[in-house]
Design a protein around this nucleic acid. Sequence first.
RNA 1: GCACCCUUAGCUCAACUGGAUAGAGUAUCUGACUACGGAUCAGAAGGUUACAGGUUCGACUCCUGUAGGGUGUACCA
Length: 549
Amino acid sequence: MKQTYLNLIFNNALYKLGVESNYNLIFDIPKNEEHGDMSCNIAMQLAKELKKAPIQIANNILENLEFDNNIVSEVSVAAPGFINIRYSNHFHFETLKSAFEAGNDLGRQEIGKNIKVNVEYVSANPTGLLHLGHGRNACLGDTIANLYDWLGYDVTREYYFNNAGNQMNNLTLSIYSRYRQTLGNEEFPFPENGYFGEYIKLIANELVEKYNDKLIDDNEENKQLIKKYGEEWCFNTIKNTLHKMKIVQDVFYNEDSLYTDGKIQELLEDFKQKGLSYEKDGAVWLKLSEMGLSEDRVIVKSSGEPTYRLPDIAYHKEKFKRGFDILVDVFGADHIATVPDVVAGVKHLGYDESKMNVVIHQFVTLTENGVQVKMSKRTGKSYTLDELLEEVGADVVRFFFIMRSCHTHLEFDLALAKEQSDKNPVFYLQYAHARCCSVIRNLTSSEFNSNIDINSLNSLTFNEHEVKLIKSMSQFESYIELAATKNEPYILVEYLKDFASNFHNFYHNCRVMDAEELVKNSRYVILETSRRILKNGLTILGITSPEKM
RNA sequence: GCACCCUUAGCUCAACUGGAUAGAGUAUCUGACUACGGAUCAGAAGGUUACAGGUUCGACUCCUGUAGGGUGUACCA
């Protein structure tokens, strides 16, 4: 109502001034609170066209502005031509009322109703354990999915994996080698490009326990068994790690199925028919140079095997065909090279590439007291996500991985993460929630009647601390939306930090227990609404909101 | 060489997509209620937004160039 109301009265004023309606009316929240609750820069925009000084135009608009004192209390003009609006006490009351009446679902919206979103994240192949980069990917993807979910979109959380090809043979040979070594043949050669992680030995040990030396003959049957066992072991371990962070995905899409279902062949023929591919040197090339990119690339090697581009494009084509309206891919910076190829390919197959949102996140470095940590102290190998989770807990991991824009390198400060004190930003939010709960507990255990007629609070005048908090409440929904449309969870984190700060400020300046009845009632409403914002905000981030700490 | 990302206070980061005096946390210094929870709050100090141009009423933000850091750049995935 606020924006539309301002639009209405400003449009009226501009109409009276005879200004054509092809201007762009924008209202901003000023950084400096002294400037008011909203500001408008229309006068500056019109200066050129009207050939008048902005400040004069602003004054003209002000003279013609008719507003309801129940909503707007004051409008003023400031150099060089800003028009500043201050809302009335009644307006703040209405804001609080509607937030309170939203109940426990405060923040939930319906703007995504009947729109299907597919968020793809993690997508690690089942050949090993998750590392820190996967952690950032997982937390970003899951939080983005949560954001869409709260906006009412129909969200599918998807994981794309490949359990075929060279890498799996490599895994099999690695396990087999460790298996032979475990059985006593310590000199048994380890494959040159094998997986050196300790987990391979764990898998081998399990095989020894289960099968003893029955797999020693490296025939095809045994190889398949080892491969299957290794794959399942890795996959279960990965899923287990994700579950610790409360990440559960809906669809696990197997790259191999693209081959067995004939999708790859179908795509190849599609490209050929559209004249987008050609044969050269025994290989099949995609005409990317005609799609706006610099060079053509091979999609089928002369050996007959496809390169990674082909299944990647086929997979995205399938996502479109499955009826998704929005696709979100979360990739690490190392995938940067494949993105333009896939986008171009999909576009030239006739799909709307603007529906594809690719989130590329930069790398993670682990530091402790300013020094980069490369290896885990315990194992001497590089840190796994599991180790990190064990060390600092899921809440801290989730928070740290999403608290920065995905464009920047993430410095994960292990010392700070381990610290259970005021220095750790996670606790700042959780503490605000716990404190909220605590005051409410105190209130409701006294003779307080929490069954409040909210309209009775209309006569109250809020103080500056209350107004600041209520204004902050009114922004919750728009920040969820902003974070989702930009696919940047950190935006919500920043908002919640600011909200918690406003809450603590309110707490210190506005006593509840010893206030008179009406004020007590209104502060209860403020507390309860604040609690829901903190709780729902933390829930979107995938972090618990304890009632006591 | 080329492509993408980054460079803001001692350190870690913001700045609502071009707005007003560039803000937080941390570190340093100072202060706070009868502890509705001090894991909090208030204040001081801290800046040539890497550098040089340009676009305009206005630039941390957009454009060009330079320097530094990161990630890629296969008939590897």
